[in-house]
Design a protein around this nucleic acid. Sequence first.
DNA 1: ACAATTCATTAATTTTGTAAAGTAAACTTA
DNA 2: TAAGTTTACTTTACAAAATTAATGAATTGT
Lengths: 147, 147
Amino acid sequence: MATQSDIKLVAEMRTTITRLVKKLRKHSVTGMALSLTERSVMELLYNEGELLPNELAAKEKITTQSMSQILNHLAELGYIKRRSSKDDKRKSFISLSAKGASVVEQVRHEKDNWLYEAITNACTQEEISLLKKALVPLNKLVDYEDE
Amino acid sequence: MATQSDIKLVAEMRTTITRLVKKLRKHSVTGMALSLTERSVMELLYNEGELLPNELAAKEKITTQSMSQILNHLAELGYIKRRSSKDDKRKSFISLSAKGASVVEQVRHEKDNWLYEAITNACTQEEISLLKKALVPLNKLVDYEDE
DNA sequence: ACAATTCATTAATTTTGTAAAGTAAACTTA
DNA sequence: TAAGTTTACTTTACAAAATTAATGAATTGT
């Protein structure tokens, strides 16, 4: 049933996410000239190894056209490698270069990371573990109705 | 202390929020031609009554210049009223028009609301209450270091 | 009175994405 | 095997949503 409380949750969730992403973008300029999506793509490649532009776009919720541009940019910076498939030459597997991988590692341990500072300073230990748990339903929302 | 788990949380949180906001934007076209931020501004005005462009911008984490554009758009649509202050003529108090208020109410109860569908269909009852609780620390992040 | 500040707006630009069209490879089918 | 279709990705043109810079008008401090 549609409780009043659920309706309020929906409105608040939308507002909070909308505002939070602006905060993230604003504080994302940690030396490197990467957008939030580009940064997310790098981490995805770091974790998963080799992926197709296709698959990257689906995971990041952008079009393949946008992904193409992002990959061009990352290639210019020397952060990724393209390997075209032997059995299907239309496909080009994307993976991080050594340089790209080291950038991911470096950025991860960067101490002047706004989100890290915000989480550890503004939140209690209980709240931090709450955030951790909340990632599960949040990611369900990200993947909802993607068939 | 900086646990490995916290570092992972930070990376995942950034990625999840980045992806989720794209999902929200994509499914936001519910008849009305309002951006996520414009929608958020409307709800803010609905809840708080009268605010200055100044204050609205701070809450939404955008510049006053951006807010100015948003207010122009909302005024064109007839959703807001401007009342210039008696004691300080530079200030213009912003509030919802009757039309604007009814739009907020209407949108709230709209049934083809993607986020509502996603939350109620993809999440269990426990997860929904988890999301509700997680709003507190999430909003702490939104307001962190705003002096 | 006048310099500095504040509040809001307008204008130009940047960022980040989409949509449409293009290219080439790989299937399908007859 | 040749014609037509689909798939995978790229390029180009454009739109949305924000930023920075410049302007104007009202207020405050000295």
